[in-house]
Every structure is written in C-alpha cells, then in structure tokens.
Design a protein around this nucleic acid. Structure first.
Lengths: 206, 206
DNA sequence: GTCTATACGTTGATAGAC
DNA sequence: GTCTATCAACGTATAGAC
C-alpha cells in the first residue's frame, strides 16, 4: 500500500499538471502565471512551488506528458499494412487527439512556434527516427503503385497540419462556423471530410 | 513635400513595427518586451513609447498590417475561373506568404491560439464574408463536376493549415530536414508538392 | 524628436508559522 | 503537507532635461 503522503502528492501533481496545460495553452509560457495555474488547480501558489520548484520545470513536465501521448497516437499508423486503412486510422487518431486534447495541441504549437527550446531534443531524436521510418513505408507504397507518387515528408506535414489545425485554430474555426463550437456530430463529419481529402490527395478513393 | 518630422515619424514607426513583428512572433505577446523590440529597432525604449503609447497598441498595429496582407494574398483566388489554375495560384500565393513573411504568420497563429482577443472582429466580419463567398465557388465547381464533391470549409482549412504550417512550424520542419533550413530550391519543391497534394485532394491531376 | 533616470505594478519564488 | 506574508527581479510606462 502506498504511503499517504505519496497519494496526496500524486493527486496534487495531477491537478496542477492539468491546470498548467490549460493555462499554458491559453496564455503561452510567459503569459501563464503560477498564480493562475494554482487557482485553477484549487490550491495556493506556494503549494504549486512546493510540488514543482520552478515554473520552467512545470512547463517541461507538461510537455513530457504531451510527447508521450503524441507517440501513442503515432503508433496507430503501424497497426495496418493496407495504405487506405492505415492512413484512415492515423488521420482519425490525430483528429481525435485534437478533439480530446486541444490544450495539449496548443501547448505544443506554442512551443514550436517560439523555437522549440524545450522539445528540440525530442524532435532531433525520437520524432526524426519515427518520421524516417514512416517515409520508407510511404515510398514503398508509392513504388508498389498502391498510392500516388507523393513526397512523403510533405504528406506527413499535411496530415499534422490539417489535424492539429482543428485544435490550434479552434477559435477561428468556431467563429467561421457561425460562432458556434463544433458539436460532436459536426466534428465527426469534419473527421470524415478530412480523411477523404487526405486519401484523395494520395490517389485513394473513398 | 512632407514635413521633416513626419518623415522621421514614418521611418521610425516602420522600424518599430518590423522589429515588433519579429519579437512578438518569437516570444509571444507577454514574452515580448518593449525593450527587446526597441533594441531590435535600434532605439531607446522611451522612444518606442513615444511612437506607440502602449505595448498593446503596438501589437494591434502589427496585427492590422498582417490582416491587410492576408487579404491581399486571398485576392489571388478570384483571379482565375478555372479550378486547377485558381487553386494552384492560391496555394502558391499562400506558400510564398509563409516563406516571405514567417513572422507575420507566427504572430497570427499565436493570436488565434490564445483566443483571438484582438482579431475576432476581423474573423467575424471580413473573413467570414470572404469564406462564405469562396465556399459558393467551390460548391459551384463541385456541381459542375469540375472537382470532387468536397466539403468547402474543410478544403480551405486544409489549404490554410498546410501552407501556414511551413511558417509556424518552421523550426520543427528544419530539425526534421536534417537540421538544415530549406533553401529556396527546397522550398520551391515543397511548394510544388503541396500544390500537387491539394489538387489531388479535390480530384484534379497535375 | 531623443534619451537617462525612475516610479510603480506584476510575478516567480521563499521564509517560516501551523 | 499547507498557507500567509514578503521580497527581489523584471517590465511597462513616464518625467523631464536636452
């Protein structure tokens, strides 16, 4: 059985991390204050600093959690060997991530826009390796004439950009949607449309 | 002939606006300090506040300039009536904007991610009108069987996301490109690839 | 129009009682 | 582990001499 203190610690850290993700997403690193995060987590600022010594450390911890989930979503690409099925599942997985974890997507976007100071190591190693392997898969499919002869890198950038756009530019999308946020049904339709566009872009019919 | 003071004013405002765009792009609104901007513009902080009373006003002025350019690039869509030509020119125009004005794109992305507090009015009026008109164009093309039957809104979001991705996620793209920024030649190739993907996505061949 | 010095608010972080 | 009080650093904005 876990000691009482450890249980408390884990619960509080979790509350803080969730609050931090939201506040960092909405205000950026500098714009986010430890006080806002603490309020959102429902505890005094001093407690936040007790659990996370510095704001910087808290930010890095938030990003680490996001990276784990990013990789988790990426695994879907390898689950199926048939191009249209693999791509469909991957796009849907990315769209669902945007829908369910919009703050995570925004924190990520923010971090990269401002120079990826924290995540550059991840980009240089894990993500580079992941992408290079998947580029080979796309090239293989092209050679087998299963899909159009596309630039694999441009293809992945397209999928990332399109799917993350629905999280990062949520506000713009909402305004252009007559001011109303997408309902679950709306979003499901967009998920289908995005998938159809991606499949067509490499020459696959739906 | 313009009075001397006016000439000085215009020159200094221009220097400040350019510096501000870069600093806002790289550090976000809160992360950008008036001192950094002033240094970048090559004048003391007090002068910056002489030309732009507050940081907020400076930020809004930067955004207004970006909006004008955004609309300018959007005009290209209407220059040609044939779908593949219109789309090709529009995508290329957006890609060139990302290439030539990466800071503008980043400031915009940042602003929208954090809730579009300043640009929401533009989104509600000008951009909504622009998009609604262009949606009709896409629908017309669909009905005439000139392009696939696609969701016009999803189509434009795709183009915006894909093209702006090359500016906003510049750093990530650079790292995934063996650490080297795209040369002009690299970028031209990507421009072609992006155009090909977009055309194919609506059923047009290249 | 330029610039140094400075006032004043905000915020990250800590001390120290409970 | 919790929380109030507090401080030092920073950053916006201005006063006032040139």
């Amino acid at each position: 059985m876990k000691p009482q203190k450890e249980i408390i610690r884990e619960a509080n850290e979790e509350k803080i991390l969730q609050a931090a993700e939201m506040v960092f997403a909405n205000y950026g690193f500098k714009g986010a204050t430890t006080e806002k995060i603490a309020n959102e987590a429902g505890l005094p600022k001093a407690n936040l600093h007790y659990y996370f010594k510095t704001k910087s450390l808290l930010y890095r911890t938030v990003l680490e959690k996001i990276l784990e989930e990013w990789m988790q979503a990426a695994l879907v690409f390898d689950k199926y060997s048939e191009p249209s099925i693999a791509i469909t599942h991957y796009v849907k997985s990315k769209m669902e991530f945007s829908r369910n974890r919009p703050f995570a997507s925004k924190v990520w976007a923010n971090e990269v826009i401002h120079g990826a100071g924290v995540v550059s190591e991840f980009l240089e190693t894990t993500l580079t390796n992941w992408l290079n392997d998947r580029i080979e898969v796309i090239n293989k499919w092209s050679k087998q004439r299963l899909i159009n002869n596309v630039d694999p890198q441009a293809f992945f950038f397209m999928v990332w950009a399109m799917t993350q756009h629905y999280a990062d530019f949520e506000k713009q999308i909402q305004i252009l949607n007559k001011g109303k946020p997408y309902s679950d049904k709306d979003f499901d339709k967009k998920k289908e449309q995005v998938t159809a566009l991606v499949l067509a872009s490499v020459g696959l019919n739906t």
